[in-house]
Simulated scan of single mutants.
Amino acid sequence: MPAHSSFDYAVIRVVPRVEREEFINVGVILYCLTRRVLDARVELDERRLLALAPDADVELIRSHLASIPRICAGGKAAGPIGQLPQKERFHWLVAPRSTMLQTGPVHSGLCEEPAKALEHLMDRMVRPPTGKP
Rank of each mutant, 00 (worst) to 15 (best):
A53H: 01
Y31I: 00
N25I: 01
R20E: 14
Q86N: 07
A53G: 07
F23I: 00
R17D: 09
M1Q: 08
R41A: 12
V106H: 09
R41I: 03
K76P: 12
L52S: 06
H91S: 08
D57H: 11
V106A: 09
L49W: 09
A73P: 10
I81L: 12
C111Y: 09
S6F: 10
V26I: 13
T34V: 05
L101G: 04
I71N: 08
E19V: 12
P114Y: 08
E113T: 07
R48G: 02
E112H: 12
E46L: 02
L38E: 11
M125W: 15
R36G: 07
Y9D: 04
N25E: 05
T99L: 13
P2A: 13
P2H: 07
V15Q: 14
R62V: 00
Q83L: 15
K132I: 06
V28D: 04
G104V: 03
E113I: 02
H107E: 15
S108W: 11
K76T: 12
V26F: 07
P96N: 07
T103S: 11
Y31S: 03
S108C: 08
M100K: 07
I71H: 10
F23R: 04
G104N: 10
P54M: 04
H91I: 03
I68F: 04
G27C: 05
T99H: 07
T99D: 13
V37S: 02
E19M: 11
D55C: 00
G104A: 14
L93G: 02
A77L: 14
P2N: 12
Q83D: 12
D123Q: 13
G82E: 11
L84C: 05
F23Y: 14
I81H: 08
P105R: 15
L52V: 03
R35W: 03
D123M: 07
P69T: 11
I81A: 10
A95Y: 13
V126K: 00
E113K: 10
R127V: 08
G104F: 00
T103E: 11
L30D: 05
Q86Y: 13
G27D: 06
E43N: 13
T130G: 14
G82W: 05
L121Y: 09
I71S: 01
V37G: 02
A53V: 00
W92H: 15
P2I: 00
